[in-house]
Design a protein around this nucleic acid. Structure first.
Length: 305
DNA sequence: AATGCGTGGAC
DNA sequence: TGTCCAAGCAT
């Protein structure tokens, strides 16, 4: 009997676990959204693109950008052949534009190291730019049917409530949580893959952060949090960072100007977008450092080639 | 381990 | 109206 990590919660016994799987999978079969990257014809590349776009970004905002992206760059080689700046422009207002740059770099790596294909091995995926533990698992599972625990914010919230009895997951992902997610995984690959997407969907549609729809939950009768009387979140609340006047806002404004322009933008035009000279300089320096912006001739800046 | 990193919709 | 939140990653 292997010891569980500190703070770990035991997975249900086999019979209960089987019933839990059945209930969630039946709900998913009934209620799952039709999303283009879930269609049978979707490519592994399409899945990878969707996962990167969905990092911290709502589905509704991703949909139109994903469609345009896949139409323009249907394979990794297509994107790798384009200038990185085109990827940043096509990213539009999805936010966190470094993701566009990393996706472009990932496409180049796929062409150089993997014959232009999206690998199925978790460790190989993890080595790609912009691909962390979650995205590597998601691609291995959703694109290739592998058996891995897919642990995103939705899954963490479902597990916190359903199994651990807490209103919210801990601020950071722990080894105990990963171990729990693995212990909950169905045995065979195909079922495990559907389980992963089904739990995510349950978290996204029913077991939501605010105002969870417990009345519509297929496993409400098994929920440790409901059984405990749905206690409110314990512990200190994350203090939210202000937005007005931050470097993030400044970077966003500067990059928006560059995205909107066909070519290089003069420094004086960037100054209109962000008049504070010290902060503008600092943010331009960080954008250059990130590779999101490159210097151009004559006190100007541009998106990268 | 804690921060920095965009954007906009919902309440 | 301001706060919270959305399929995280890199450092």
């Amino acid at each position: 009997m292997a010891a569980r990590p500190a703070g770990a919660v035991a997975a249900p016994p086999p019979e209960e676990l089987g019933a839990l799987h059945a209930d969630v999978l039946a709900w998913y079969a009934r209620e799952a959204r039709d999303l283009p990257w879930r269609e049978p014809g979707a490519s592994a590349w399409g899945v990878l693109v969707s996962e990167v776009m969905l990092q911290q970004t709502p589905v509704a905002r991703v949909l139109p950008v994903w469609r345009a992206w896949l139409r323009r760059w249907p394979t990794p080689a297509d994107l790798a052949a384009a200038p990185a700046g085109d990827a940043v422009r096509a990213w539009g207002r999805l936010g966190y534009p470094r993701r566009a740059l990393r996706l472009h770099a990932a496409a180049a790596a796929l062409v150089e190291r993997h014959g232009g294909r999206v690998p199925s091995d978790h460790a190989v995926l993890l080595a790609l730019p912009g691909v962390g533990a979650y995205t590597a698992a998601a691609v291995a599972v959703f694109a290739h049917g592998g058996r891995h625990a897919v642990v995103d914010t939705n899954v963490r919230r479902v597990h916190a409530r359903l199994v651990s009895g807490a209103a919210q997951p801990a601020p950071a992902l722990s080894a105990a949580e990963t171990a729990l997610a693995e212990a909950l995984l169905p045995e065979d690959d195909a079922t495990a893959a559907r389980w992963g997407v089904a739990v995510m969907e349950l978290g996204a549609l029913v077991c939501t952060a605010r105002a969870p729809g417990c009345a519509a939950c297929p496993v409400a009768d098994r929920c440790a949090w409901l059984r405990a009387g749905a206690p409110p979140a314990a512990g200190p609340t994350r203090r939210t960072q202000r937005w007005e006047g931050t470097d993030r806002q400044a970077r966003g404004r500067l990059l928006a100007v560059l995205r909107a322009a066909d070519g290089p933008v003069a420094d004086v035009d960037l100054a209109v977008a962000w008049p504070d000279e010290a902060q503008r300089s600092r943010c331009l320096a960080s954008l250059l450092d990130d590779g999101l912006v490159v210097p151009a001739a004559g006190a100007a800046y541009a998106l990268p080639r």
